[in-house]
Design a protein around this nucleic acid. Sequence first.
RNA 1: GGCGUCGUGGCCGAGUGGCUUAGGCAAGGGCCUGCAAAGCCCUGUACCCGGGUUCGAUUCCCGGCGGCGCCUCCA
Length: 482
Amino acid sequence: MTSLPIHLYDTRRRSVVAFEPIHPGKVGIYTCGPTVYGPQHLGNMRSQLLPDVLRRVLGASGLDVRYVTNITDVGHLVSDADDGDDKVEAAAARTGESVEQITRRWTDQWATDRRRLGCLEPDSVPKATEHIAGQIEMVQVLEAKGHTYQIGDGVYFDVSTFPRYAEFAGLTLDDHEATGRIDNIVDKRHPADFALWKLTPPGVSRLQEWDSPWGRGFPGWHIECSVMASEELGRHIDVHTGGVDHVRVHHTNEVAQSECAFELHPWVNIWMHNEFLDLGGEKMSKSRGHILTVDSLVERGIDPLAFRYFFLQTHYRQQQAFGFDLVEASGTGLRRLTQHATNARDEVGGDLLAPGSAGQRAEELRKQFWSALVDDLNTPKAMAVVSTVARDGELSHADRWSLLGDFDRILGFGFADAASVGSGELGADLGAKEPEVAKLLAARQAARLAKDFATADRIRDELAAKGWEIVDTPQGPTVRRS
RNA sequence: GGCGUCGUGGCCGAGUGGCUUAGGCAAGGGCCUGCAAAGCCCUGUACCCGGGUUCGAUUCCCGGCGGCGCCUCCA
């Protein structure tokens, strides 16, 4: 695998390019994280899953990966026309809670949910409010280089000083005016100019504000990412990810600031953007009050990891149709896959094969799997290989486990620790955890042995009504939650 | 209105100028089972419409229709 060259789609160049780390052997990845004024929904989690797969693939290729994603706890305005309130501040005003209570709660929800989806922990999770000094400093640098101007409302970036501004997202700057949809209540020179530092109006006091060379206020949204990314990963970034919606405004502005302040042209080598989840016409955005979260899945009895499997079944640059029935279907697929993996694992005592000791057929499949992934993270294709491995009759148990155990470094399903049918949580611990269920199960088995099938079936129905499905295995009967 | 993207078998969803029956879920048949469930085996021959390029297009080009996204906060 280490020998396979990795190719990734770069939004800036609009093509798949060969990945080359800036510093040999190392790679830094930055992802625009959540604005913690409300819950993160399943669509948001797609942009957590993309970098998770990316870092796993890069890591498996032998690179030392440093993954950073931030928490936006200030500066993200309710409207991006550079007017309106800070989102966190607005939420605090609405609920009467403190800013800390709000940002803490939603930061925790985000962290918990990404964990439930099998995402590895970031190496660092910087917060915007903890990098105020750096942001002020960067604005000063931009100011010194003549890229800013100040008006009553704050300090703005002057896009006319950055000729490449429209290039990144393929914008036609005139469109900004043509649409006529932006109310320019501030005296911006160009509609695309954006706030670097917002000033608190005289006589007003905000929950979150800091002193600056321009007066009390708070930083603009875009500046935080440029600052945190460079402080954590150095000025020249290998990969920066985010949702497609960020291309036009947020990332365009990040590029403008960073390239001007650092005097560096591609500030980021590869920009990766995940497409949206398609909720069948109904847009799943916070402003519409349509909040589907990981909890929404759990409430329906769906394993959060089913969503991970669901995510892997579609390419990240493709809009993905969402439906609970679809995620449930993925859950079925995951359950079967896990069963195959654990069966093979248990057959060989859980030991992963030493590299090279797998058979010809196995090595062929292993190569297919990694080839799909290094081709711009073609996870659907990789999953097809996974399915083949799970059932291929030519593979020995050892080979099967060798492959699935290896693949799980990317899949993140936790095969090594997963409970197998007929053992673990379902078997040995059942008596302790679910004494009632264990008793019924034993009673049914006794009835079966006594050929009293009427009683046996009645008990089976009883268990089913309680949400337990009986699974008869060669090792004897056991149950699982249905 | 502008820009972009997608339109594949019941559903989701890869892929390719003429050998992939991709894969998953669902469905049907079989094996197993006391009967089931679970599991295993087998089956289904698809590429929005109309032109064009080509020996040949689902795959390339043009047009149309349709979905979605961005252009406003949004992953």
